[in-house]
Design a protein around this nucleic acid. Structure first.
Length: 549
RNA sequence: GCCUCCGUAGCUCAGCUGGAUAGAGCACCGGACUUCUAAUCCGACGGUCGCAGGUUCGAAUCCUGCCGGGGGCGCCA
């Protein structure tokens, strides 16, 4: 029995109790959940539904709880229902019902944890979107890890999702980039506002390698711009791929300009009555939608602003059919939220169509001191630096383990340690241990068989572990709905802890050459189920699940 | 000045979107290895949840105001 099915039983028992007591069932929620109480004296699961509904129904919570308990106690799988405090229902599940989850998990395999909480949602998730004028740095690294994990979690929850990277390949930053490459190739000093770093030298050389005639071309700057951008973007794509971050679409800002999408978007906004001219510039009246001030679409020199491209990009996404546009931005962009939301509303979309997630910064520390130097990019820390320092698994785990709301200090020393204090190793080791037990079982010819006797799984460590396993789908669902992939990492740590405790106290394989018992076999199912869930959880985080360590 | 994030054990952070005696890891102290991989486990210590009000049966969680820290506020991209 899963917590979800138990919650349904609680709800239907409550409905029946309302009827029996002659109460108005309209105050009942459509869904309810059971929670795992910390104190084992409070049973396996607890529900506060009587507390939540009694007042609205005009009755006493304790009396209502008693009626619900009476009706719930007769349900299959429910061993005991106690009432505690002001009206909590403390539910004890019978071992056989609880133990059934292991079989469910093993049968589901890689699909265990998937759920339908976001079924039918067609979403676009934009993240990283670092300028193609240099390598991805530390901030972008966090979004590369979190965004990718969020994409996986939302897909696992049934959303149809496109992961997208907006390539800012138009505008003055790109001009500076091209000019820097050209100057480098000609051996001239870096121009004002130009880019420096070893990567500029490399790309300048690579442009010449690919186009030996570049300096003699009709427009050398254009050659360096086009080829340089391509090389830089290839480099970024390679870095992301090595990091395990997948994008479905790399969307070119320049293509919006070339296809006339900016004119089209501004025209549309004009038709909707939100555009005006003042001081020789063209403006969008974003203040109608809560922004601090109106924003310029086209400046007085007749040039498009970046904001105008944002409008066009927004319209393009909507025309591609996305009903949910999610953005992950760094805290340095939070000032853009107001104008971005205004774009959505100016086009007449429902609030909530556009969702902007703001994440705080990450500092890389070594021995408690901020790390500054990068071989590639002046004194900026890059994604490659982070990976070089701690490896992909530790980097991804470290960056997805914390709420995006909190700024994090990533301590290189901690994340390269092999032990309990390093969460990624703690979780991976639990997975390796499950694999080891299964390997040993196979070596000794102990098969878990077609089925098992779930009622044998009554050890406290077993029931704790089974409850943790049963929780996984709802963890994935809430991580997706709340856009908080760190919940998966925290859950994985709890599950790993429950498994380590289980393995410490519960012997799985027969000792010596004793014959395997039914308990041995039943426990193998639990071990296998744990292996599956740990692997699935790590998979959602983009972290490997090693079979040996 | 305005916007935004944070403030929970000595340190790093969770806290399941209002529930029971607020949790984990680290650090410190004390235990468990002829092991299914001890990269593990168990125990002890440790808190006015920044402060003050408010909402209610009930607040770390929601609202308001302060205090402290991070980030941001361009006809830049």
């Amino acid at each position: 029995m899963t917590p979800e099915t138990l919650a349904e039983k609680v709800l239907s028992a409550t409905r029946a109790a309302f009827e029996a007591l002659g109460l108005d069932a309209a105050v009942l929620p459509a869904r309810t959940a059971v929670e795992r109480p910390r104190d084992p004296k409070h049973g396996d699961y607890a529900s506060n539904i009587a507390l939540q509904t009694a007042k609205k129904a005009g009755t006493n919570p304790r009396a209502l709880a008693e009626k619900i308990a009476e009706l719930l106690a007769g349900q299959g799988g429910v061993a005991k229902v106690d009432i505690a405090g002001p009206g909590f229902l403390n539910i004890t599940v019978d071992a056989a019902a609880a133990g059934g989850i292991a079989g469910t998990i093993v049968a589901a395999g890689a699909s265990y944890g998937t759920n339908n909480s976001m079924e039918g949602v067609y979403a676009n998730l934009e993240f990283v979107s670092a300028n193609p004028t240099g390598p991805i740095h530390a901030g972008g690294t966090r979004w590369a890890a979190m965004g990718d994990s969020l994409a996986r979690v939302m897909r696992a929850s049934g959303a149809k999702l496109i992961a997208e990277y907006y390539v800012n390949d138009a505008g003055t930053q790109v001009d500076h980039f091209a000019a820097s490459l050209l100057a480098r190739a000609k051996g001239e000093p870096t121009p004002e506002n130009g880019y420096v770093g070893a990567y500029i030298d490399e790309i300048a050389a690579d442009v010449l390698k690919r186009r030996p005639d570049a300096l003699d071309a009709a427009d050398p700057l254009e050659v360096f711009r086009t080829v340089g951008l391509e090389l830089m973007l290839d480099d970024i794509k390679g870095t992301l791929a090595d990091f395990g971050t997948h994008f479905d679409v790399f969307f070119s800002e320049r293509s919006l300009h070339e296809r006339g999408e900016l004119d089209k978007a501004v025209e549309r906004l004009g038709e909707l009555g939100h555009v005006y001219e003042a001081d020789g510039a063209v403006w969008l009246r974003t203040t109608d939608f809560g922004d601090d001030k109106d924003r310029v679409l086209k400046n007085s020199r007749g040039g498009w602003t970046y904001f105008a491209a944002d409008c066009a990009y927004y319209l393009d996404k909507r025309e591609r059919g996305f009903e949910k546009l999610v953005f992950m931005l760094g805290a340095d962009h939070h000032g853009y939220v107001g104008r971005m939301q205004a774009i959505s509303q100016a086009f007449g979309d429902e609030p909530g169509t556009m969702e902007i997630l703001i994440g705080q910064f990450v500092n890389l520390l070594r021995d408690g001191e901020p790390v500054r130097l990068s071989k590639r990019a002046g004194n900026i820390i890059t994604l490659n630096d982070v990976v070089e320092a701690v490896g992909v698994d530790a980097a991804r785990y470290a960056l997805t383990r914390y709420s995006a709301d909190s700024a994090i200090d990533l301590d290189i020393e901690l994340w390269t340690r092999h032990g309990n204090e390093n969460p990624v190793y703690y979780v991976q080791y639990a997975h390796a241990r499950t694999s080891a037990v299964l390997r040993n079982a196979a070596d000794r010819g102990v098969a878990k068989g077609e089925s098992y006797d779930a009622s044998l799984l009554a050890h406290p460590r077993e029931s704790d572990l089974l409850k943790a396993l049963a929780e996984f789908p709802s963890v994935v669902a809430s991580a997706a709905e709340l856009r908080e992939p760190h919940r998966v990492a925290r859950y994985a740590e709890e599950l790993a802890a429950a498994y380590h405790r289980f393995q410490h106290d519960c012997r799985v394989l027969p000792v010596g050459d004793e014959a395997p018992t039914d308990l041995n076999r039943a426990r193998l199912w639990v071990v296998d189920a744990t292996r599956v869930v740990l692997a699935n959880a790590l998979g959602l985080l983009g972290v490997s699940a090693p079979e040996r360590m």
